[in-house]
Simulated assay, not measured.
Amino acid sequence: MRATGVGSHPGEDQQALDEAVRVVLGELGEEPGLPYLPEVPGRGATATMTGRGLAVLEGLDADLQPAGWRLTGSSGSPGVDHRRTRSLLAQDLDTLEERAQAFTGTFKVQVCGPWTLAATVERPRGDKLLADHGARRELAQALAEGVRAHVADVRRRLSSLERLVVQVDEPALAAVVSGSVPTASGFGRHRTVDLPEASQGLEWVLGAIESSGAEPWVHACAPGTPWGLVRGAGARGLSVDLGVLAAADHDVLAEALEAGESVVLGVVPGTRPATEAGDAQVTERVLRWLDMLGLDPEELPGLVVSPTCGLAGADAAYARAALALVRTSAANVQAG
């Protein structure tokens, strides 16, 4: 039984990133914690989930337009914004390396998934990559290659790690497979991506993570995420918001846990609620869920608790409190 966070933290500058690394290592650096590289998207477009995903791409260039990120092709000469997002990721990894070089346990990093990138990044000719079958295929393959290099870089920096998890963030996957992503005009919707293609795009990225010696997880907090498809594509960890799951999703999670895989239950709000729950209430919620499925917490080493989504919309004090709450709750569940 472990505790972790989804990834994002509040703040608007590099000092906020430094503080977030310190908080994560302080709250989750010892059992039952699972620390991670924080993301601080408030620093601007180069630090958002999309920007961080583009920083990892191999062989494709991008630039920043008034409407957002746009691919510019494969010239091998990235524009200034693309260089900045790569530089910022390297700078964040430098900070992590300085603070966590001696860490020896399990560590997590996050990367934007291929379908969320396809739903948020534009083609050179305009509109989302999602509109172009060939472009979205090329994007997924470029991300898979880039992830290999990213895993190698993290392992080089944190050479004492026992286990590295790479969480692929796919908040837009549900919209992609349901045909709910709006077109550039806002008046239409992109066509549904069929399930075999959606699975293949994920398979390339998740397979690249696993073949690089890391463990592939997928996070999504949107209702309607096809968790059976995600698990079938090779995810060895499923990170969910417990409050938005459909009835069939619970069976998929139970099967994953019984197979020795990881399930991350989002049970603490990502922003400060009107009435804050204590660790006893969070613990009880996890135990009730396990009881509903007939699962024994003592036999589920892959169970993890976390906030429901990222903490970027919270204040710094609540972000710290949320991590402390999931850590204490995990210890309570583990203790029985």
Rank of each mutant, 00 (worst) to 15 (best):
S159M: 07
V168I: 11
L117N: 02
G146Q: 08
D153R: 06
S159I: 09
L139K: 01
L161M: 07
G186E: 08
V193W: 09
S185K: 01
V193G: 02
Q141P: 01
G134Y: 15
A119I: 02
Q200H: 14
S180W: 14
A119T: 09
G134C: 13
V177L: 09
V168L: 07
D169W: 15
A140Y: 14
P171F: 08
G146H: 02
L164T: 05
E122I: 08
S180D: 10
L139G: 02
A172F: 11
S178Y: 15
Q167Y: 12
V177Y: 11
L143S: 02
D132T: 07
L129W: 12
A135W: 10
E197P: 11
H190L: 03
V176R: 01
G179P: 07
H133Y: 10
A142P: 00
E122P: 00
A118W: 00
R157Y: 05
S160R: 12
L129R: 04
L161K: 01
V176Y: 05
F187R: 07
A135G: 12
V205S: 03
K128L: 12
A175L: 14
D169F: 15
L173D: 10
G179H: 14
R163Y: 13
P182C: 06
G179S: 13
D127M: 04
V121W: 09
V181P: 06
G201S: 06
E162L: 11
V151K: 04
T183M: 01
A152T: 11
A172L: 09
S180M: 15
S178Q: 15
E170V: 07
